[in-house]
Write a protein that binds this DNA or RNA. Structure first.
Length: 317
DNA sequence: AAAGAAAGCAACCGCTCCCGG
DNA sequence: TCCGGGAGCGGTTGCTTTCTT
């Protein structure tokens, strides 16, 4: 972005029709006026009809991230922060889904906030004492697991000589290990008190945590150093153990479907739920019926339903 | 006060999904 | 069923602002 435009050849002619870079107040006004008068439609038409020398994509982004009248500006409140942290711990980098739970906030805004503020705060927390669970902000302890899992993902995947494409999806990089009650390292989430048992967490996440199982050793309550040092043999052992815990067919564990896009991921959920004993896997979450029901039915995971369930947990909503 | 570093943020890029022809 | 275009998403870049030395 915002690089000087370079005309190199024919193929760039189309691209160079459009302006790039920061929006001027005039452009903003044009787009704003057009949108308010005509409403949303085909973005390339909007760009043209509004008299903007921008591509539709650029207009869409500008509208969604900046001009939309319902946008809330300013710093994130502690509640919003907490919600972001929590949602991210559950669904990973699905910013648009997270944004949909925060009225007036955009996915871009949340993503930036996460990458700049929260991630760094976590890092600091981490460097001072990686396994110190008496940190000032317990939420960060929870995030610790998530972020590290995410950052480790590529390394672990490479280590296992798995299909590299499976490493490209952030959607599959979910922080909790789906290892069931026994192996879940609850000490990494000290903020979860009795209102939110680990059994519930493990259960609630099991439904959509098949993907990280490709990250051998991501679960099992292992420390990061231990996971890093794991060779293939150890990794295979832990994989087998996880397979047993999850009752996954061996073939599926050995050849997990590629998780390089959301469809595959969701599809995978649909296929694996039949392998799970939902009551067993969900533990106490069984009383939070909608999510369980959704998974039983093989539905795509439904954030709305889940958040309704989560609303009974005083920590978050 | 100046320079360099860090943080914040807007916007682009590349990819996938979805839908209509 | 295939193909192309539009929309949406997440990752990344790089400019601007703020902080630190």
């Amino acid at each position: 972005m915002r690089k000087p435009e370079v005309v190199l050849g024919k193929e760039n002619v189309e691209k160079n029709k459009y302006r790039k870079g920061l929006w001027s107040p005039e452009e903003d006004e044009k787009l704003m006026r057009y949108m308010l008068n005509n409403g949303q439609g085909c973005w390339s038409d909007i760009a043209r009809n509004a008299g903007l020398q921008r591509c539709g994509k650029s207009c869409r982004l500008r509208w969604i991230n900046y001009l939309r009248p319902d946008l809330k500006r300013g710093a994130f409140s502690p509640q919003e922060e907490e919600l972001i942290v929590h949602l991210h711990s559950l669904i990973g980098n699905r910013w648009s889904q997270i944004a949909s739970r925060l009225p007036g906030r955009t996915d871009n805004e949340i993503k930036n906030f996460w990458n700049s503020t929260l991630k760094k705060r976590l890092k600091n927390n981490l460097s001072s004492s990686p396994y110190n669970h008496e940190s000032s902000d317990p939420r960060l302890d929870m995030m610790f697991g998530g972020i590290m899992a995410t950052q480790e993902h590529d390394i672990m995947s490479m280590n296992m000589s798995m299909d590299s494409s499976s490493t490209s999806s952030s959607s599959s990089q979910l922080p909790f290990s789906a290892t069931g009650h026994n192996s879940f390292d609850s000490s990494s989430m000290p903020f979860l008190d009795n209102n939110f048992e680990m059994a519930s967490v493990a259960g609630a996440t099991n439904g959509f945590l098949q993907a990280p199982l490709t990250d051998m050793g991501m679960g099992m309550g292992m420390r990061m150093e231990e996971r890093f040092s794991y060779g293939n043999l150890e990794a295979q052992r832990s994989m087998e153990l996880e397979r047993d815990v999850l009752c996954l067919p061996h073939e599926e564990m050995m050849n997990p479907p590629l998780m390089n896009n959301r469809s595959n991921f969701d599809q995978y959920l649909g296929t694996n739920e039949q392998n799970m004993n939902v009551e067993e896997m969900f533990g106490d979450m069984g009383s939070h019926g909608q999510l369980q029901e959704s998974l039983k039915m093989g539905n795509e995971w439904d954030l709305e339903s889940f958040m309704q369930d989560m609303s009974s947990f005083p920590h978050f909503l």
